[in-house]
Amino acid sequence: MFAKDIGIDLGTASILVYVKGKGVVLREPSVVAMDKDKGTLLKVGTEAQQMLGRTPGNIVAIRPLREGVISDFDMTERMLKEFIRKAASFRLFKPRVVICVPSGITEVEERAVVDAGIQAGARRVFLIEEPLAAAIGAGIDITKPDGHMIVDIGGGTTDIAVISLGGIVESTSIKIAGDQFDEAIIKYIRRKHNVLIGERTAEEIKMQIGCVFPRPEEQTFEVKGRCLMTGLPRVFTVTSSEMIEAFEEVSTRILEAIHGVLERTPPELVADISTNGIVMTGGGSLVWGFDKLIESHTGIETHVADDAISCVAYGTGKSLEWVGDMQDGTMNISRRKQMNN
């Protein structure tokens, strides 16, 4: 049987796999668990994530992607191989794979992603920049001479781009995103309450009561952690207004990056953006009130795309239709399309 083309959103926090003709078939955390003594892979994805912070000495659960790029090549390759195997099942021919990467990626990092894909069992690997994939997935027609602004807040990177005529006109990629929100919660609770909490607890707090703009009603969350004074377990309550304080630095950095991109954008496109609004995608955009915060600072209507977490995966999947036109696997789809136009 012929292999179907596959699109992969290679995220710092989670990996989504899109199979042509089927849609998103796999959505798992970017975590692997391995036995250090034997060097064997034990679990991948959801099962490995449950082991984070709970493993004995010989087992290590790690996230092989940090800040949008590969930090552990071997583990990334093994993880990709497992996900491609799950998604493609048995096929006679290897699939062609389109992988999504941050817009600020270097050539060395680009090559690492392509190599990891080939080693994991892909016949050819093509790359597409995250903001482009997010725009396609959000239903924007990127081929028109009309400016659109995308803010994609993932796990490791925030990609901000102005798109027109099928290409990126102005963009920036900062290593401030969902992971930094989690770190901000851990630091804030340590500083304010003298309690140490883990990454998973921080993630839960972020999802339940996290916000960057005042909520209509105050919300609370019961936190369990280790008291730094006594070393004993402690249970206490945090509020949503405390989260605004905890997230202030991270959200300000993202706002500054958006402002910087708007400053460098040609005036005609800025006029288009003020009409079309700003579209937010990625898991980080789901932090309550982010669209309201951006709107209050820029004066431009901002909205979060439908199914924001899957936008990049859907966009990567839709870009599979262009794969036949491409010759060079190391070249970004966006650049190839610009050269073809």
Score class of each variant (00 low, 15 high):
Asp152Phe: 06
Gly68Met: 02
Tyr314Ile: 10
Ile174His: 05
Pro64His: 02
Met79His: 04
Glu218Lys: 13
Asp159Ala: 03
Ser334Phe: 08
Leu228Arg: 10
Ser319Gly: 07
Leu228Phe: 06
Gly121Asn: 03
Arg124Asn: 15
Ile140Tyr: 00
Ala122Val: 03
Gly284His: 12
Leu26Ala: 12
Gly260His: 04
Gly166Pro: 01
Met207Leu: 14
Glu242Gly: 02
Met1Lys: 08
Leu255His: 09
Thr316Asn: 10
Ala313Val: 07
Ala88His: 04
Lys318Arg: 15
Glu107Gly: 04
Gly210Pro: 12
Val312Gly: 12
Asp179Gln: 14
Glu263Cys: 04
Gly154His: 11
Lys43Leu: 13
Gly68Cys: 05
Val31Gln: 03
Asp146Thr: 09
Arg54Gln: 13
Glu110Arg: 15
Thr172Ile: 15
Val19Gln: 10
Val212Trp: 07
Arg54Asn: 10
Ala177Gln: 02
Thr237Phe: 10
Ile189Gln: 00
Leu232Pro: 00
Leu26Ile: 11
Ser103Val: 12
Ile254Pro: 14
Ser30Asp: 01
Met326Val: 11
Glu130Asp: 05
Gly155Cys: 05
Asp182Asn: 06
Val151Trp: 02
Gly210Trp: 09
Pro29Glu: 12
Ser164Thr: 01
His259Pro: 00
Ile197Ala: 03
Phe213Asn: 04
Ile176Leu: 12
Val108Cys: 01
Leu16His: 13
His303Gly: 11
Ser103Phe: 11
Val250Met: 06
Pro216Asp: 10
Ala87Met: 06
Ile15Ser: 03
Ser296Met: 07
Trp322Ser: 10
Gly21Val: 06
Arg264Trp: 09
Ile150Gly: 01
Leu80Ile: 02
Met149Cys: 03
Ser251His: 08
Glu249Cys: 00
Gln50Glu: 15
Thr316Arg: 05
Arg336Asp: 11
Lys337Cys: 06
Arg124Met: 09
Trp322Pro: 02
Glu249Gln: 13
Leu132Pro: 00
Ser14Glu: 14
Gly155Phe: 00
Gln49Ile: 00
Met1Gln: 06
Leu52Gly: 06
Ile205Pro: 02
Ala202Ser: 14
Leu293Ile: 01
Ala48Asn: 08
Ile309Val: 15
Thr158Cys: 04
